[in-house]
């Protein structure tokens, strides 16, 4: 029994430090990818609701394609073609040196954000549409410019409708960061445990630890989401 716990210790004998590093990687990748997908989702949602046909077309194509393909496939495509293409483009523009290469970390972040941005788009679009027309008309009637109207009226009210959906996507993204690990480019939590289990043959131990860690992330997240829900629900 003692020897098992030593496997989770620090230093050469134990995997504890690697697991903690993986845990932090999972959280950091998820946070950055989530922030990026929020941005993508907001822009795409506004495009879908835009009067400009071209913006609508681009946003529709994006969400349709990403939502129809298996996540893993999209991640592979983004990682192996889009990221490579972006590297070539940056090089040909002379913005970066010839040896420049996106790190596996950033490639994974971009892939995750690209996939989740599509789902984010739909959550946000629904949230925007759920804001009653009278709320925006009252702002138009006092001559509020559109950008201010969005920031002061639509966004806060949209959040009330969107927070449950946005919370789900956050939980999903923490888990999908484990899928991105198949790219083998950085050591997040599950991948680290997979290696540790392979070396030590203590599958039960390591996978239980990882399960507990993901559960912890979820529980903390849910508590935070609940508080945000209460905050944006004020007045309703």
């Amino acid at each position: 029994m003692d020897s098992k716990w030593e496997l989770l210790g620090w230093g050469d004998a134990g995997w504890g430090d690697q697991l903690l590093h993986g845990f932090m990687m999972t959280i950091v990748v998820s946070l950055i990818a989530y922030a990026m997908s929020l941005t993508i989702g907001l822009l795409a949602a506004l495009s879908k609701l835009s009067a400009r046909r071209m913006l609508r077309g681009i946003a529709n194509t994006y969400t349709t394609i990403v939502r129809s393909l298996p996540e893993l496939l999209v991640i592979l495509i983004v990682y192996f073609s889009l990221v490579g293409g972006a590297e070539k483009l940056l090089k040909s523009l002379g913005l970066v040196s010839d040896r420049f290469e996106f790190s596996g970390f950033w490639a994974a972040v971009v892939a995750l954000a690209f996939v989740n941005g599509a789902f984010m788009t739909e959550v946000m679009r629904a949230g925007i549409l759920a804001v009653p027309k009278g709320q925006t008309e009252a702002a138009e009637a006092i001559g509020m410019p559109r950008a201010l109207l969005f920031r002061r009226i639509v966004l806060p009210q949209m959040l009330r409708h969107s927070v449950p959906g946005l919370g789900n996507l956050w939980l999903a993204i923490t888990k999908e960061s484990a899928v991105v690990a198949v790219l083998g480019t950085f050591n997040e939590l599950l991948f680290t445990a997979y290696r540790a289990a392979g070396v030590t043959k203590e599958y039960g131990l390591f996978y239980s630890v990882v399960a507990a860690a993901f559960l912890l992330i979820s529980l903390v997240s849910m508590a935070i989401i609940h508080r945000i829900e209460k905050r944006v629900g004020r007045g309703f």
Binding site: A138, P156, Q157
Partner: peptide
């Protein structure tokens, strides 16, 4: 407005 349309938040 008929329905007031006060900003609910």
């Amino acid at each position: 407005f008929q329905n007031f349309n006060l900003w609910a938040h």
